[in-house]
Structure formats: structure tokens, C-alpha cells
Design a protein around this nucleic acid. Structure first.
Lengths: 239, 239
DNA sequence: CGCCCAATTGAAGACGCTCAAGGCTTGTGG
DNA sequence: CCACAAGCCTTGAGCGTCTTCAATTGGGCG
């Protein structure tokens, strides 16, 4: 059940079989949710963290007028709210983008296992930092990249992150976000997303249709985005 | 020397006198830098983390054409690159905005002290999460807030963060960023920052001049920004 | 006094937004 | 099996926020 999570961790550090077993035993429950459901509401105390097993989820913040900013997209293998282990409540909502399957990890169990295996605690601390690094790259996109580059960036990042967990390759990946949601990730309106997606298609860079992203020219995509994957910290090393 | 750092930590969790002493003993060196100097270059392996004692610093990423996005502003008491302890190298540059004084903490010493005091490790893990929470609020600003709200947000956040470490009050705070730098925080050009700052002044909300931010109407400033300080996690509790 | 950097202002233009309408796909029910 | 509804995608037109380019003003410091 944890294969994808372990793949994600292993992309950055060695993971002992022991950890995988200990983690598996922590799971208190698995749940299924439909699309567009809030799974972890903001400002509510949490007693467990949620690992995404299948499907797509996101975290977002919004303004009074309802305009929404997605701050992170989650793929299978990600903890969607590991930070609730440390922060207790979240400063944002976590919702599903597609139907999903998740596993719940009680914080008390996480506390025990991270005390028993300090190396695992370091791995999760590292993951918190990785999360922040992705936020920073998004800040750069939102603040300084133009529309084409923002969308190219999003596609580049997701291609790499999905590839790690076996859900994508150089040709592309399943990508169920609507154009409204892509706009909520990139700080654009759906109308402008639509026009920009068309530009990328007409330039032979990438093609988006109904739940699928085809990467036609990965080098061009990376160039368009000025994508430098070092912020994803993919070299495996001791942490 | 660590008073401001301890004030920052104490705003979120109890800090034992023991920790303060142990931390103080870790400092290998203090250094002074002039303004506009890179202190921690991106993608270079680090063996210590840097605590800001006096002055302002920032972290930023930039694009090929030189346009820069500041991803975080640091005030005295902040670790500017605590994440290098876990990540080893940074995905961004860290520079000074004013002349500063910093203290260096060797990673080896941090490793020892966090192993000796697991509660301190949790406090720093928490701080990593706080850092990410601030990044998320900035993502919301950059993606969805209008120019006035972005600048109001920046001022609101800094007023709170500086207040915690005794460097500001309800009337305002010393704020040495140039309008170019404010633009680099908020994803705007210096020209538009200038016009927006004028609007805030004419609306009687806040006044910026030569190194000082006067908050004329804090309630109006918070309203303008839709500022909700919960993302700064200021309730003190066990971590 | 004069230099330098930051702040300020004006004018024109671009990128992305808003509003509005129409088209396509998918699923559902008769 | 077809009709229809719902949701998403697509396109057009006009507009607004913010940018770009350029020039001027103001303040601090040697």
C-alpha cells in the first residue's frame, strides 16, 4: 500500500525495509473520498496525518471574494498534511481533485516511530523542507513568470514528481485538473489558461486534453519554464 | 546575543533556559556583512546555519533575465538557512538587505544538540513548518491579491514578526527595504509599488518613507490585506 | 557643492481579466 | 438508443491593472 510513498522517500534517501514495516503498522484506517471534498479543514485540530494513496489532491487558501490559490498539488505517495503533525492545525484547506484513496496515520503513532527511528524523523523533516522548496519555486512562478512559463513549470514539476512514483514517463502523464484548477495553481483565470494551453500546443511543446498531459517536446517545455529540477532534491544521500 | 531568537521561539512554545545555554555554546563565529551581499549562495554545500542577529536579510530566486522574486524577508532572531541543516544545499540565494550581524551554527553541533534535546528538534521542525506557512501566504498574495493588498499584507506580517522580537509596535517599525525590493517581494515593479504606496498613504492606512513604516490605521491595513495572523501560529503550546 | 541612489511622475502599451456566448463531451434517464 | 442536462472547453470583444520606458526630483553623504 505504501509503495509509492516509499518510492518518493527513496528518491532522496535510503529507506530501510524496517521503516516501511513500522509505517505500515501505524495506519489506523483507509478512506475513500469523492472529487471536490474537503478532507482536512483549515484551523481545526488534527490527530492524524493523511497519506494520499491514489488520485490527486491539493491544498489551497482563498480570499473573501472566493478567489482561490492552490498552494500545492499532491500526487500518490505524498503526505498531504504532514505539517499537521507539528503544527496541530493547518492554515489552509486540503481537498480532493479527483476521487481518492487515503491512509490515516495517527500523530501519536508517528511520534513513537520517529522517536524510535531518528533517521526517519530526519527524513520527514527533510520532506517538510522539500515542501517549502516547492512553495518557493511556485512563489517565483506566481511573482515573476509569464503565463506560458507558469503552466510549463507546473507541467514540468508534475512530470518529474509523477515519474518518481511510477505514474508518468517522458511521453506524459494522466493529469485530471480542469483549466479552472490549473488557473488556481498558476494565479491565472480559466480563460487565460485556455489561451495559453493553446499556445503551448501550437508551439509543439505540450498538449492537454481531458485528463491527460502529453509532453511533445520535453526540452522545449523545460526551456519555456526555465525548469531546474535541483529544487526537488533528487540526489539520493544520507539525511 | 540570542535574545531575539529566543523571543521568536517563545512566541510559539516554552523554551527552557537549558536550550538557550546549549545553543549559545554552539556558535562557532559571528560575522558582519555590508548591505547587498550574498551570504549563502544557492547550490553550494553548507556546513553551518546562519542566525540573523541584527539587520534585515532575504532569500530569493531569479530568472534568466534577472527578474528576481524574494521568497522570504528575515528579521533579527530568524535562522536564515535552517533548511541547509537538512537539505545540505539551498535552492535559492540568501543575501543581506542592510548591514547585518550574524552568528554561525555548525551543522554538526546542531545535530548533537537536537539529539540531546528532542524537544528542541521538534521546535526547529516546527520552525521549518512556520517558514512554509509564510511561503503559502505569500503564494496567495502573489497569485490572487491585488497590488494594494499585497503591500498591506507584507506590512502586516512584518509588523507582527518584528513586534515579537521587540523591534516594532502598533505605531510602526523600522523598514529599510527600497521600493525595488518591496516590488521583488510582492511581484510588482518599483513604479507600481510607488503608486500603490502613495494610495495607501492617501487613504490614511500606512506611510512608508526612508527606512520607516508608520502604520496609521492598523485595522484598515489588516482589512486591506485580509490579514489573518493565524498562519503565524502565535499561540504558545507544547510542541 | 556635487554625486549617487532612491523616489516620483508621465505616457504609452501589453498582458491578463471580465463578461458573454457557443460548442463539445460525458453521463443519465426515458 | 436517443434526448437532454451539466460541466468543461473554447472563442470574441472590450477593458483594467500593471509594465515599460523615460525623465525629473529629492535626500544623504563624501
Amino acid at each position: 500500500m505504501l509503495e509509492r510513498h516509499i518510492l518518493k522517500l527513496q528518491a532522496r534517501a535510503p529507506v530501510l525495509a524496517e521503516y516501511e514495516q513500522a509505517l505500515g503498522e501505524l495506519i489506523s484506517e483507509t478512506r475513500d473520498y469523492a472529487a471536490d471534498q474537503i478532507v482536512v479543514p483549515a484551523y481545526v485540530e488534527q490527530v492524524h496525518s493523511t497519506l494520499l494513496l491514489e488520485g490527486f489532491m491539493c491544498r489551497y487558501k482563498d480570499l473573501a471574494d472566493g478567489r482561490r490559490q492552490i498552494t500545492q498539488v499532491h500526487v500518490p505517495g505524498d503526505f498531504v498534511d504532514l505539517h499537521s503533525f507539528t503544527l496541530k492545525y493547518l492554515d489552509q484547506d486540503v481537498m480532493t481533485l479527483t476521487p481518492v484513496k487515503v491512509a490515516l496515520f495517527p500523530h501519536e503513532g508517528l511520534r513513537q516511530v520517529t522517536e524510535r527511528y531518528p533517521a526517519l524523523a530526519r527524513i520527514y523533516w527533510f520532506n517538510t523542507n522539500l515542501d517549502a522548496a516547492i512553495h518557493r519555486e511556485w512563489e517565483l512562478s506566481l511573482g515573476r513568470r509569464k503565463a506560458r512559463a507558469r503552466i510549463a513549470m507546473l507541467l514540468s514539476e508534475l512530470q518529474v514528481r509523477l515519474g518518481i512514483v511510477g505514474l508518468g514517463d517522458d511521453a506524459g502523464f494522466d493529469f485530471p485538473l480542469t483549466q479552472v484548477e490549473i488557473g488556481e495553481c498558476t494565479g491565472l483565470t480559466n480563460v487565460h489558461v485556455n489561451r495559453t494551453v493553446r499556445e503551448l500546443r501550437e508551439a509543439g511543446v505540450a498538449e492537454l486534453r481531458r485528463g491527460r498531459a502529453d509532453i511533445l517536446d520535453k526540452a522545449a517545455l523545460w526551456r519555456e519554464a526555465e525548469f531546474d529540477p535541483r529544487y526537488l532534491y533528487l540526489q539520493k544521500r544520507e539525511r
